[in-house]
Simulated assay, not measured.
Amino acid sequence: MSLKKWAYGIKGKVKIAAVLGGVLSLLLWSNLMDRKRVTQLQTSFSAIYEDRLMVESFIFDLSSILHEREQLIITSLSSKELNDASKAHLKALDSKMMTIVDDYEATRFTDLEKRVFLEFKELIPSISQMGYNLQENDLAQTNKTLTHKGLSKLTVLSNIQTSEGQRLWEETKAIMLQKQSSSQFEIISLIALAIMIQVLLFSSTSVFKKIQQKPHLN
């Protein structure tokens, strides 16, 4: 009888071990997925901040520079004079514009964004040369045309930041929802594990009681 009891005990322990192993494997897999999702969240938030919000501030600053540059040239044409202070101001604006463009270029681009950015960048040499010679033919019209083209490109780039920011935010919400579902799965797995262990333990106890019964009592 003791041999049968031992056999049934081993069988029950194997069942419990199998259940534990299966559930722990699922929990380990869920934990690994959670770590992966945390990394994805960090990447997504980094992209939203560095490649979208920061770039939006670059675009705003570039737009401000173009407007300021345009107005300075208009004022100089009206007074028919570009004094040393105005020349220094133009140079400072041009230098600031190039610094911002370099910072912008260091961020990650979508295919469309890269194409529009390069189109804007191609305008910069012409914009930077403009205004230092007030005797230039059609300077007023050139000033207006180039400024309008630059601002149009920046508007397109700004719209791209909005759409890409929205896309990244939707991805972030999806990852957060998956993480929430994973946490719920872990809780349910632990509850199921506890229930299954209790069932196996009660089942083993019931078997032991039947084995311990004496033949003359049946």
Rank of each mutant, 00 (worst) to 15 (best):
L77G: 07
E119Q: 15
H89T: 09
I73R: 01
S181T: 06
T110H: 03
A140M: 09
E136F: 00
I187H: 11
I59C: 07
G165F: 07
D94S: 13
I175T: 14
L154R: 08
I74P: 00
L168T: 03
R69G: 03
E68K: 12
I188V: 09
K80M: 04
S152T: 11
K96P: 05
T99V: 07
I188T: 13
E186V: 08
G165E: 05
T172S: 09
L82K: 08
N83Q: 03
R69V: 02
E171N: 08
F120M: 09
A92R: 15
E170K: 10
S181V: 07
S79M: 03
I187D: 12
H148W: 04
L177G: 01
S79K: 11
K153V: 00
Q71C: 01
L154N: 04
K179E: 14
L82W: 06
D94R: 12
S78Y: 08
K91A: 04
D102N: 15
V156W: 00
F185I: 05
Q178I: 09
A106E: 13
L82I: 15
D103Q: 14
K153W: 02
K87D: 02
K121Y: 14
E81N: 10
T107Y: 09
N159Q: 13
L62F: 04
M130D: 02
L93H: 08
R167M: 06
V116M: 07
K144Q: 13
F109L: 11
L151G: 01
F185P: 00
K91T: 08
F60C: 01
L168W: 00
M98F: 10
L118S: 15
K179G: 09
E105W: 07
N83A: 04
S163P: 00
T99K: 15
M196Y: 13
I74L: 13
Q71I: 10
N83G: 02
S182D: 11
S79G: 01
Y132R: 03
